[in-house]
Nucleic acid binder design. Structure first.
Length: 192
DNA sequence: ACTGCGATGTCCT
DNA sequence: GGACATCGCAGTT
């Protein structure tokens, strides 16, 4: 079991908060893109809004594997969404990465997001992050301790700096407050 | 500021 | 056949 898997062997809500401030590192040839996670959402098998709610299927099987893997799925006919698998495997839990702040490799990100002029709009949504980091289904099940796509754990963000809200873009269990973001961070997808 | 909507592929019932 | 953990543009207030 990797150190990352041990670090993320947490209930989805706790893991979603723990992932705030952590970094995604995407190696592109001899350069790298680094982004800080600023917004997350929690999902698990007890949650009607979760892909794992009805048990294992071909799409969601990675959610029932070891923490620290990437769960990447395709939606709306044109977008990918990135999740980090967390918790004990039987929980089918994962954390959706909804927004991130570019720390380096801005030129590489812009190359994948050519129509976008405002830097705040490059990575402030789950589909946008996958475009910016060049993440597709080929990374579904990828071990995030390994190149060319890694998750680096950082110092936890204090609870006092985390905002908790309802989730975005779902139609089930819309009352549950399982969205988390870093207060006052301009790269968050939206405020509410 | 907000609202509506078209694009588009895959999974699941 | 319907739903979908979205995005970006166009139109309106």
């Amino acid at each position: 079991m990797s150190l990352l898997a041990k670090e993320l062997n947490l209930p989805a809500d706790i893991a979603a908060k723990r992932l705030l401030g952590c970094c995604l590192v995407r190696d592109m040839g001899d350069q790298s893109i680094v982004c800080k996670i600023v917004e997350t959402e929690a999902y698990d098998h007890l949650d009607p809004a979760s892909h794992s709610y009805r048990g294992i299927t071909p799409r969601n099987e990675v959610m029932f594997r070891e923490a620290g893997l990437a769960y990447v799925y395709f939606t709306y006919g044109m977008h990918h969404c990135l999740n980090v698998v967390v918790g004990p495997s039987e929980h089918g839990s994962a954390v959706l990465i909804r927004a991130a702040e570019p720390l380096s490799g801005l030129d590489l990100i812009k190359a994948s997001r050519q129509k976008i002029k405002n830097n705040l709009m490059l990575t402030n949504g789950p589909g946008k992050i996958c475009q910016a980091l060049n993440i597709g289904r080929e990374f579904n099940g990828h071990d995030l301790t390994q190149k060319p796509f890694r998750l680096v754990i950082k110092t936890p963000i204090k609870d006092s700096e985390i905002v908790v809200t309802k989730r975005i873009g779902i139609t089930k269990a819309t009352d549950k407050k399982r969205r988390f973001y870093i207060a006052n961070n301009p790269y968050v997808s939206r405020y509410s």
